[in-house]
Nucleic acid binder design. Structure first.
Lengths: 205, 205
DNA sequence: AATTAGTTTAACATAATCGTTAAACGGATT
DNA sequence: AATCCGTTTAACGATTATGTTAAACTAATT
């Protein structure tokens, strides 16, 4: 998995590009071979089957943003300190790989039964994460802020704008991709402000 | 389009279910026919081709949530008044059709060139929407709140939690679907609070 | 120069999918 | 009872996708 020949890299690069765009079923092995500029049989030589090639691509995609999620859920640092760092990391990752959110969410939505295995493999421990959240002083149900809702809000604000890129670009930015992108960069400063506000709220629950 | 035989309804119902779950390329006409309990040829009898059947399903999906979006962008009511209504509507729609966000976003991500036509057909006028936003007193760049960012935040908070359902359910709610669902209902009250806070902010820009 | 191991390709077999054509069915109308 | 029209089905042809097998090529080593 670590060592890859140049050819393997070319294959995965083309597979990523096409799977991200058209999905697994919508992409043929021939499509990938053409894009990589090689014979189709070669894909099977290196990756046995389409399933296994897809699996490699999917895992690689997961690996791009699960670590920062896992770090947030498990690190000893309090949310308050860690959140701004996490936001910057996630958004930068999204800017570099804007198609990953939909790709991953679509696959998980089709095959939700994959989640438990992925959680295990990626080293996420829901129970531990829950405990950590419960121990956060500023972030608790008693304070009027459910830690789960807090994380949902955080991820929503960071990830959704990329999943909805075409809609946002065409409706809110009249098709101007540059404007869209610069708005996304702006969000690196904007989201922490919002999050801080959410944390400081104290409704008369 | 308005009048549909019982058979047509069965076809669309099965097509929706399967297209939502496995996508266009991942679903065969045979799959749909089996699910609907009829012969495959019958699908072609009513919907000429797979493309046209998919198109019918896609339009129907769009029609479920574009109207409330369009209403928000165009109505004479100010954001401040309209937003809570819109949130409730959107979330209720999502609860009833949890798979639509990913389905639509995936299709638009694969074929972003479809956006202009969709915008036109759905009666959305980006220029008018921009003008409306600019005229909002409490919501302007001068006040420190970019109306575009505001809408992005609003949609993110409402829609993303449904697109990410499996992830959220398994990591944050340890697989408990009921808990997930009740959290989503809770968001109908939660999001308006957050949005109100965002609107009242006044950073030292 | 010959051999060898790794890489690349061409050709084949099997299976799946799509859309069409023509025939069968069924219930209402004459 | 026969006809007739909308509905449903069975069978066919063409195309495409996948994975395998066996052969060709290449470049390094003997």
């Amino acid at each position: 998995m670590v060592l890859q020949t140049e050819t393997e890299e070319k294959i995965v690069a083309s597979a990523e590009k096409l799977f991200y765009q058209k999905g697994k079923a919508g992409t043929s092995m021939q499509d990938i071979a053409d894009d990589a500029g090689m014979n189709r049989t070669l894909l099977n030589y290196y990756y046995r089957s389409k399933d296994q090639l897809f699996e490699a691509v999917f895992r690689k995609a997961l690996g791009r943003f699960v670590p920062s999620l896992a770090a947030m859920l498990h690190s000893d640092i309090s949310f308050e300190e860690y959140v701004p760092v996490m936001i910057e990391t996630v958004i930068d990752t999204m800017i570099d790989n804007p198609q990953i959110p939909i790709f991953v969410l679509q696959e998980l939505s089709s095959n939700p039964q994959r989640m438990p295995e992925i959680i295990r493999e990626m080293g996420i421990n829901p129970a531990v994460a829950m405990k950590k959240m419960a121990s956060e002083g500023t972030l608790s149900v008693e304070q009027g802020i459910d830690p789960r809702q807090f994380i949902i809000n955080l991820l929503s604000l960071c990830i959704f704008p990329f999943a909805a890129r075409p809609v946002i670009t065409d409706i809110l930015f009249e098709g101007d991709n540059e404007a869209y992108l610069s708005a996304m960069k702006e969000r690196k400063k904007l989201i922490p402000q919002i999050v801080k506000q959410i944390m400081m709220q104290n409704p008369s629950k």
